[in-house]
Amino acid sequence: MTRQRRSFSAEFKLEAACLVIDQGYSIAEASRSLNVGETGLRRWVTQLEQER
Rank of each mutant, 00 (worst) to 15 (best):
S31D: 03
R43T: 09
Q50P: 09
V45D: 02
D22L: 08
L34V: 01
L14I: 06
T39F: 07
Q23E: 05
E15N: 10
G37K: 15
V45T: 04
R32F: 01
A10P: 07
S7Y: 13
T46C: 12
Q47Y: 08
R52K: 13
L34A: 01
Q50K: 12
F8K: 01
R52F: 07
R32I: 02
V20A: 01
R42L: 06
S31A: 09
R42P: 14
L41K: 04
S9Q: 02
R6Q: 15
A17M: 02
R52T: 13
F8N: 02
A16G: 02
E51L: 15
S7L: 09
A17R: 00
M1T: 15
E38W: 11
S31H: 02
L48P: 03
G40F: 01
I21K: 11
Q4E: 14
I21V: 12
S9P: 14
N35V: 11
A10F: 09
E15W: 04
L14C: 04
S7W: 04
A30E: 04
E11T: 15
A10E: 05
W44S: 03
S33R: 07
I27C: 15
D22A: 14
A30Y: 03
E38M: 08
S33W: 12
T46S: 11
Q47M: 06
Y25F: 12
S9H: 05
T46M: 11
S31M: 07
M1W: 14
Y25M: 02
R42A: 04
K13E: 04
F8P: 00
E49M: 06
R52N: 08
G40N: 05
L34S: 01
Q4N: 13
L34T: 01
R6I: 10
L48W: 03
E15L: 06
L48G: 02
L14D: 04
T39V: 15
E15C: 06
M1D: 05
F12S: 09
V45I: 08
R42D: 08
R52D: 13
C18R: 15
R52W: 13
R43K: 14
E29D: 13
R43Y: 13
R32L: 13
K13C: 12
V20K: 00
S26K: 02
V45F: 14
L48R: 15
M1I: 14
L19Y: 01
I21R: 12
R43S: 08
T2L: 09
E15T: 03
G37I: 11
K13N: 05
E38Q: 07
L34G: 00
Q4G: 11
E38Y: 08
A17L: 02
E51D: 10
L14P: 03
T46R: 12
Q50A: 07
T39D: 07
